[in-house]
Nucleic acid binder design. Structure first.
Lengths: 165, 165
DNA sequence: CGCCATATCTGCGAAATCCGCAAGCTTCGA
DNA sequence: TCGAAGCTTGCGGATTTCGCAGATATGGCG
């Protein structure tokens, strides 16, 4: 009675991406609008029973495909300095990325194509802490050729609504 | 109980940053670990009644201080091209940032200090769409002097645990 | 100082939701 | 043809959510 939707669209064979069908996508979209929406309401929206939605959501969480969390703008909340750091690497880029991943001050790490090999977003207590992380810890990583920092002045937008538009 | 805690720390006079006390911070941390955690459990953790937690959470949501949502890695999910775009502006930077905010493909906009005035993260259907957004729409904005793109290859880390470490 | 308005917290029942479980059905692939 | 996987329906019981009434501050203001 419903989903004749496009569905699949894997596009990435390796990477163990657990192929999501259109229904799971729809469930995720529902939870992107409201992470606390009841399973029954989601089921009604995507054409599934409450129990089925519950099972799927649990699996998506277990698999790490999605997480349901509160997000804020640290700057608005009041404390901490934030910055994006562009990094150039010689040698194994991924090992540097992994090292960054291990740092608690680093919230976001992405490998990119362009004049930076890696972009990392870091959140710190204050300017001293920020300076310390960038100069002492990141620049000290083996393979790091150079870095460039962009200190956050103001966050203007932050959404999680891809797929819903 | 009380609050001789630091609290305030606005740093941004306008912007109506609603001063958060230590209790609200603690509530947010709870929801950063699990966006669906029951109010009663949160209350027990932060020392408040269930109803009080409910009220504060509702207010935080209404005020836009936080949002509870499902987050994913679009690349893992399987479709769409992502990129970070660094932008240089001549004239009013904020008006350019506002224009970016209005674009549905733009998920993240932040004004920065450094060799870029603005960083914007964009999520697209495919390469054509990406090219279109960058070259036709962003570069066409009045005041945009230049842009530089960083296409995402792989997301390595993504957390929302500031405050909890 | 006394009073009112606002804000916040607590303590309830009532309603809704979550959760585990079982039985039956369909599909898909070995 | 058999078996695994996934969905549905149905069901209680435990848990959670929700709305409201009654305390308890707190901050003006005359």
């Amino acid at each position: 009675m419903h989903s004749d939707v496009v569905a699949s669209r894997s596009a990435d064979p390796r990477n163990g991406s657990p192929q999501l069908d259109a229904v799971s996508l729809a469930i995720i979209e529902q939870l992107q609008e409201d992470g606390r929406r009841p399973y029954a309401a989601i089921g009604k929206a995507v054409g599934l029973s409450e129990a089925a939605v519950r099972q799927r959501v649990q699996k998506l969480l277990d698999q790490g495909v999605m997480q349901i969390v509160a997000v804020t703008d640290p700057l608005t909340v009041g404390f901490r300095r934030q910055a994006m750091v562009g990094i150039n690497v010689e040698g194994d880029t991924e090992s540097v990325a992994d090292a960054l991943t291990g740092m608690s001050e680093v919230e976001y790490v992405v490998m990119t194509a362009g004049s930076f090999d890696i972009l990392a977003e870091i959140v710190c207590e204050d300017d001293d802490h920020l300076l310390d992380v960038i100069n002492k810890r990141i620049r000290a990583l083996p393979g790091v050729r150079s870095t460039e920092s962009f200190v956050y002045l103001k966050l203007k937008k932050q959404t999680y609504m891809w797929g819903t538009r």
